[in-house]
């Protein structure tokens, strides 16, 4: 652990390329963007750094606040869904026999091997008016002769709305929720569950008082791993959401492209980043509560 103290040269030689990379390609550009957020647009490409706070103030315009609020709402719903769907999945994987477990984990990670753009387009094929879901529904509708009762089949509007965006983000981020929760459940000492049963607890009670409190740190990790990227997502709402389902990421992207207002985009970006930091600061609290646990109360 402490060996780098004894071999500082090796330490620096190993660390330097990474540090260099971080500074040149991350921190420096970030600094530029940060400066830009205090600037004014002077023509199509000219930006003057004037130290104005105008860009930040503009962010509090009700239009943007509304989008920000919607972004947080969608991200919260997505996170909740990922936890609620992901926990049972993680639980089943963690409790399956080792051989099956390997395959299930592989299945969870399989989507990582396919580009997100392609997966998102695949979702469009599933959800659009003449997509697989509506096609199947129409077939069932005809099969059950519901058209006699309710008139001809109306395709469900499943694309270009909030539903599609939420579904899309959940679909993409679910593995990020499953993996940390799986790790936490897998680490859980099985003899604790047996001890609870031995002391008279039903399976459900054991779950509530032992499993859940002791895997809370995994849930906390999953929440952060889903919520933070969800806040910044723009590709999925861009492809699956209509103008009504725009998230803050789309607004920021638009400033750098269509609207060509880099200073404002920079300010919005930093606001989002500060918000993320604030959430990260909450994490130790979450984890500490998990460690202390309240299951016994």
């Amino acid at each position: 652990m402490e060996s780098w103290r004894r071999h500082p040269l090796v330490f620096w030689a190993m660390g330097l390329p990474g540090i260099f990379w971080l500074i040149v390609f991350f921190l420096v550009p970030l600094g530029f963007v940060w400066l830009m957020s205090f600037g004014e647009k002077r023509g199509i490409v000219d930006i003057a750094i004037t130290g104005t706070l105008e860009n930040y103030l503009r962010a509090f315009d009700p239009v943007y606040l509304g989008i920000l609020f919607k972004t947080v709402r969608i991200s919260l719903i997505v996170t909740l869904l990922c936890i609620v769907i992901g926990y049972p999945v993680a639980y089943v994987i963690a409790f399956s026999p080792p051989k099956v477990r390997t395959w299930l984990l592989l299945a969870i990670m399989l989507p990582f091997w396919i580009n997100m753009l392609i997966r998102t387009y695949a979702l469009i094929a599933v959800f659009r008016t003449r997509g697989y879901v509506n096609f199947t529904l129409e077939w069932l509708y005809g099969l059950l002769r519901l058209d006699a009762l309710f008139g001809p089949f109306q395709p469900l509007p499943m694309l270009y709305n909030e539903f599609a965006v939420i579904f899309g983000i959940v679909y993409v981020f679910l593995p990020f929720a499953v993996l940390p929760m799986y790790a936490a459940i897998e680490r859980l000492d099985r003899s604790l569950l047996e001890a609870a049963a031995d002391l008279g607890a039903s399976r459900f009670h054991t779950f509530l008082t032992i499993t859940l409190p002791l895997t809370r740190s995994g849930i906390a990790s999953a929440v952060l791993l889903v919520f933070i990227p969800a806040l910044g997502s723009f590709l999925i709402p861009e492809l699956l959401g209509g103008p009504n389902a725009y998230m803050i990421g789309n607004v920021i992207a638009a400033q750098f492209k269509k609207a060509n207002d880099w200073p404002f985009g920079a300010a919005l970006s930093f606001l989002l980043m500060y918000a993320t930091f604030a959430i990260l600061a909450v994490r130790p609290l979450l984890v500490r509560r998990a460690a202390k646990g309240e299951g016994a109360r």
């Binding site: 000492d189 003899s191 604790l192 047996e194 001890a195 609870a196 032992i210 409190p213 002791l214 460690a291 202390k292 646990g293 299951g295 016994a296």
Partner: peptide, 9 residues
């Protein structure tokens, strides 16, 4: 292993 619940007193 005693299997004490670590999150309880």
């Amino acid at each position: 292993s005693y299997a004490l619940f670590p999150h309880m007193t």
